[in-house]
Nucleic acid binder design. Structure first.
Length: 216
DNA sequence: GATGCGATTCACT
DNA sequence: GTGAATCGCATCG
């Protein structure tokens, strides 16, 4: 039989509204939120570091800067869904789609603290020496949660989704710091769209854009 | 059709 | 601190 159309609850509607704003405004509000993965044994992570990426034309560092393609399509899609991309031939990174109606953008989840399923996270991240290293980096966090390209585009606000974002967990008294984004060169390199929980040990160490050639 | 490089991580010097 | 690993994608010819 045909399942009834899902009725979004009030928390989900509130979250959807919160994410329907420019990524740069949404990103700091994701700090302290919970990412819960039921892909395999449950692992939950408290978000401690994020970066904002805007849409076409406005942010040269964004995957959505040039135009919509098959790869970045999720960034143009519904707010609150996942954008998962593959980079360096081996790493997956997770974004939360956030933008105003008709535009594109999202927030890269750069780091978090594993608060549930530490042993499961450790078995996925055998090279991590300390617990604080388990999700201290975008690709590390994705591994912790078991996220791959298979999760690209899924709805993070659907209560039955295997990967969920819980905004209601956000506490009020977080010390938020901001600064330039990591790994960005050229235009947009100085935009302070990286946000983190000040003093949190799980925040990934800042690296300026890979000092390739010609420093100037 | 070919090519260069990336929103990174890890091991090693 | 530096370099290798590794491949899909966007750009260029």
């Amino acid at each position: 039989m045909i399942p009834a159309r899902r009725e979004p609850g009030p928390a989900e509607l509130a979250a959807r509204t919160q994410l329907s704003r420019p990524a740069a405004e949404v990103a700091p509000r994701l700090l302290g939120a919970l990412l819960v993965s039921d892909l395999g044994p449950r692992v939950a992570v408290r978000v401690t570091e994020v970066e904002a990426y805007a849409g076409v034309g406005s942010d040269p560092a964004s995957h959505a800067h040039r135009r919509r393609t098959e790869r970045n399509a999720s960034l143009f899609g519904p707010v609150g869904h996942a954008y998962v991309y593959f980079t360096y031939g081996m790493h997956w990174c997770l974004n939360v789609v956030a933008h105003t109606e008709g535009t594109a953008g999202g927030a890269l989840i750069r780091a978090g603290e594993v608060i549930t399923g530490v042993s499961a996270a450790r078995s996925r991240r055998t090279s991590a020496r300390r617990d604080r290293d388990l999700a201290s980096g975008p690709a590390r966090l994705a591994v912790c949660l078991g996220v791959t390209g298979d999760q690209d585009g899924i709805d993070l606000l659907d209560p039955v989704s295997p990967l969920r974002l819980e905004l209601q967990a956000v506490g009020g008294s977080l010390a938020i710091a901001s600064g330039p984004r990591t790994g960005i060169a050229g235009a947009g390199a100085d935009t302070p769209w990286r946000f983190w929980v000040d003093g949190d040990p799980t925040v990934s160490p800042y690296r300026r854009s890979a000092a390739r050639k010609s420093p100037r």
